[in-house]
Design a protein around this nucleic acid. Structure first.
Lengths: 210, 210
DNA sequence: CCCTTTCTGTCACCGAGTGTCAAGGGAGTC
DNA sequence: GACTCCCTTGACACTCGGTGACAGAAAGGG
C-alpha cells in the first residue's frame, strides 16, 4: 500500500489534504453540532484556509454527503459481488452489512456521525436524497440479477426500498442506544433483516401484473 | 366565507401577508429558478421588507416546504375520512388524489412548482424529508384502520411507501411532459395506482411473521 | 534553468439568516 | 380623547456560507 509511486506527488498531497479535511470536519461537527462549527474552524483545524475547504467540498454539508456517498458505493459494489444464485434478501443483507463493517474500529466516532446526520434537518434531508439514489441503483442491479426490467417491474424498487428501510431502522436504533455496548450493530442488522426477509423474498410473486 | 369576523383584524392581516408572500415567492421562484431569485426580491414583490419575510418563513426553502406541508396534511386528512371498509389501495389512491385536486385550476403554476422542487437539489432533499414524514403518518393511520401495531408490523409502512412511490412517479412524469395537455394528472394517477394496487392489497398477507 | 500547470492564501463581495431597537398602529381602559 | 399595552414592521448591523479574481508558491516537463 505504501510502496506505490503510481500516483504523482501532487495527487497524493491532494488526497492528504482531503482526508485531513474530512477527519477534522467529522470530528468537530460530531462533537459540536452542525451549526455550532464554522467552516473557518474546520479549515483552520486542518491547517488550510477557508477558501481551500471550498475547493475540496461544494458545501459544508458536502463533507458529510461525500462520506455517505462512499458508503453507498460500497453497498452497490457488494451487491454486484454477491452470487446471482443468492436469494434477494440474503444478497441485500450482505450489501447493507458492508456499510456496517466500514464502521468497525470507528464505533464511537461512527455513532456520533450517524447521530449528527439523523438529528440535523439539513443533513437528514441530504441523507434521504442519497438514499433515494441508492434505492434506484440497487433496484437496477437487482433487476439485472433477476432478469427483470427495472423500469417496468415494481419488485426491484420495492425490494431495495425495504432493504433500505431496514438499514434506516438499524441506524436509528443504534444511534439512540446508550454508548455502553448493550446494542451490537451486527445483531441489530441481523434482526432487522430477519423481519424484512419474508416480505422481501415473497413480494416478488405479487408485483408483476400482466 | 367572507362574513366571518371571528378572526381578529390583526390575524387576518397577518394571513394576508403570508398569502401574498407565498404567492410572490412561488411565482418568482418557479419562473426564475431557486438560486436566481433573492429573498429581497420576493419580499419587495410582496411589498414588505426582507426582515419581515423571515418572520413568516424560517428560510427561503421554507416557503416551498410549507406549501408541500399543506399538501401532506390534506392527504392525511383525506385518508382519515375514507371509510374503514375500503381496501387500502383504494383509500390511499383517494388520499393521493386529494393532492392532485388541489392543483386543479392552477395547472400551469402547479406544474412549474413541481418542476422547481424536483430540479432543485436543496428543495428535492426537503421534499424527500417531508415525504418520509408523510409515510410515517400515513403508516400510523393505516395501522389504525386495520387494527395493526404500526411499530411492529411491516405492512403499514410498506404500503404507505408504495403509495408515495406511485405519487412520486406521477409527479415526475407530469412535470417532464410537454405543457400542451397530452398528459392528464387524473389519468396518470389512476394508471400508477393500477400498477401498485395488486401489491398494495396483497403484501399484507406476507408481512406479519409470527 | 525556465516555462507551464496546479494549488494555495488573501481580499472583496454577495446572499442567507439573526439580534436589536425604535417607530407605527390596533385594542382595551379610564 | 388620552393613555397604555402589545403586536408587527422596517432599518441597521452583524455573522456565516459560498464565490470570483488575483498573485505567489510549488510540482512537473522541456
Amino acid at each position: 500500500m505504501t510502496s506505490r509511486p503510481a500516483a504523482s506527488l501532487a495527487q497524493r498531497k491532494r488526497q492528504l489534504v482531503a482526508d485531513e479535511l474530512t477527519r477534522a470536519a467529522l470530528e468537530l461537527l460530531a462533537d459540536g453540532g452542525f451549526d455550532a462549527v464554522t467552516v473557518d474552524e474546520i479549515a483552520t483545524a486542518a491547517g488550510v484556509s477557508k477558501r481551500t475547504f471550498f475547493r475540496y467540498f461544494a458545501s459544508k454539508e458536502d463533507v458529510v454527503v461525500q462520506f455517505l456517498a462512499a458508503l453507498g458505493a460500497a453497498m452497490r459494489e457488494e451487491l454486484a459481488r454477491r452470487p446471482a444464485t443468492e436469494a434477494p434478501s440474503v444478497a441485500l443483507r450482505h450489501a447493507v452489512w458492508r456499510c456496517v463493517e466500514d464502521c468497525a474500529g470507528h464505533e464511537e466516532r461512527a455513532r456520533k456521525v450517524v447521530r449528527l446526520v439523523l438529528s440535523t434537518p439539513a443533513l437528514l434531508a441530504r441523507f434521504l436524497e442519497r438514499q433515494a439514489q441508492w434505492r434506484d441503483e440497487l433496484a437496477v442491479q437487482l433487476a439485472e440479477r433477476l432478469g427483470l426490467d427495472a423500469g417496468r417491474e415494481l419488485y426491484p424498487r420495492l425490494a431495495a426500498d425495504m432493504a433500505l428501510a431496514a438499514f434506516h431502522t438499524v441506524l436509528q436504533r443504534w444511534s439512540t442506544a446508550d454508548a455502553g455496548g448493550g446494542v451490537d450493530l451486527v445483531v441489530l442488522t441481523r434482526d432487522s433483516f430477519a423481519v424484512v426477509a419474508p416480505a422481501l423474498d415473497a413480494v416478488v410473486r405479487t408485483s408483476a401484473p400482466a
